[in-house]
Simulated assay, not measured.
Amino acid sequence: MKKVVTLGEIMLRLSTATGMLLRQANQLSVHYGGAEANVAVSLSHFGYQAYFVSKIPANSLGSAVERHLKSHGVHTDFLLKGGERLGSYYVEEGAGERGSQVIYDRGYSSFSQLEADEVEIERILQGVSLIHITGITLALSPALKELVLQIFKKAKEMDVLVSFDFNYRSKLWSQQEAAAAIKPLMPYIDICFCGELDAVHLLGIEPAEGSLSQEERLLFYYMRILEKYPDIQYMSSTFRTVLSASSNRLQGNLFTSDKLYQSKVYHLEPIVERIGGGDSYAAGILWGILEGFPAQQIISFATAASALKHTIQGDCSSFSSEEVMQFAKNESGMINR
């Protein structure tokens, strides 16, 4: 069984009911989640030994986080205890033409106060096939920027695949700050989750000229990125068309060996929960790569995993790889008898 590691912040999430504004709410639903934690949960349900590296407070909320992770089979051996608070965020669920809104309350969280020397990098990478981190982690402190760079360098020395999701969040930092932190990581990345806007605004790729299709533009940017960073083996992103808060169209893209592979287009309606859809997609890509599947099968699986995640509440997905593959084969909405 392959061992994978993710590192990042897991938070308490407080959400309104659909149709309720935060300023109106007198009760909120509780979930736990974070980009890297969600990927670990999915990979655990896909059958891997998934380890999550983070820091949580030594209080009841920290205990609840640990229980949440263990309930999904995620190993917590590298979960540090300390600091004073668990980061949190509030979600005002969208409806119709009104999109969802997110308010972060994560300043001075235990994870954001993590120092690089607290993490035993060689120990967490021992026997590991892949490590996955996102740009959200870089945004939280200078120490975490340095830690991620150290981890990626050591991973390359230890022949561990490095996966990085840009996951840019404008509420956490500026494009200039993100670009300065991400560019030094690029030579160490094997699997990169990024799109057209990331290429232009964070990597400084010149905008494509002419009347290109969406697919042609993405291929243009991926080729330019590969010219600058030739060691990247895979690049991936999604095309999402937002029709309303509860109706989207979704298609996955995977670039490898100078070719762009695409999934079918899913019409997601009604959407039960959009948060975590990208993390399920990333986990699907990683699973397919680690399993050695052909590129077309990888992108079909990953997009199906994301589509399934949109049908359940909470930040993370608990579908098995067998369930995802069955869903990908079935026609939408068919009863599996």
Rank of each mutant, 00 (worst) to 15 (best):
M1W: 01
K3Q: 15
K3A: 09
K3F: 03
T6K: 10
L7A: 12
E9T: 01
E9S: 02
S15N: 05
T18Y: 00
M20G: 00
N26M: 01
L28A: 12
L28K: 07
S29I: 03
V30I: 15
G34V: 11
E36A: 05
V39W: 03
V41L: 04
S42F: 00
L43D: 02
S44W: 02
H45L: 02
F46M: 04
Y48E: 04
A50I: 08
I56S: 08
P57Y: 09
S60T: 11
G62C: 12
G62F: 13
A64D: 13
R67W: 00
R67F: 00
G73P: 04
D77Q: 15
F78N: 14
L79D: 08
G83S: 14
G83H: 13
R85K: 15
E93T: 15
G94M: 10
G96H: 07
G96N: 12
E97I: 10
G99A: 13
G99I: 01
S100H: 08
Y104M: 09
Y104E: 03
D105H: 10
R106V: 10
R106N: 11
R106P: 10
S110I: 10
F111I: 10
I121A: 02
R123S: 08
Q126M: 04
G127P: 07
G127R: 06
L130K: 03
I133R: 01
I133K: 02
G135K: 08
I136S: 07
T137D: 04
S141V: 11
S141N: 12
L147P: 09
V148D: 08
V148E: 12
Q150Y: 00
I151W: 09
K153F: 01
D159H: 15
S163T: 02
F166M: 14
F166R: 00
W173S: 06
Q175L: 11
E177M: 07
K183A: 06
P187T: 13
I191A: 04
F193H: 13
G195R: 04
E196Q: 13
D198L: 05
V200S: 04
H201T: 08
G204A: 03
E206K: 14
P207K: 01
A208E: 10
G210Q: 11
G210W: 09
L212A: 12
S213Q: 06
S213G: 15
S213H: 04
Q214M: 13
F220K: 06
M223H: 14
L226S: 15
K228Q: 15
Q233D: 09
S237V: 00
R240W: 14
T241E: 14
L243N: 15
A245W: 05
A245P: 08
L254E: 09
F255S: 03
T256G: 05
T256S: 14
D258W: 07
L260Q: 03
V265A: 11
P270I: 10
I271D: 06
I271R: 03
D279A: 03
D279E: 14
A283D: 10
I285A: 11
L286Y: 06
W287C: 12
F293D: 05
Q297E: 15
I298E: 10
F301I: 04
T303Y: 11
S306D: 09
G314R: 07
G314V: 03
C316D: 14
F319R: 13
F319L: 05
F319Q: 14
E322F: 04
E323V: 01
F327V: 03
F327T: 06
A328T: 00
E331W: 09
E331H: 12
E331T: 13
S332G: 01
R337K: 13
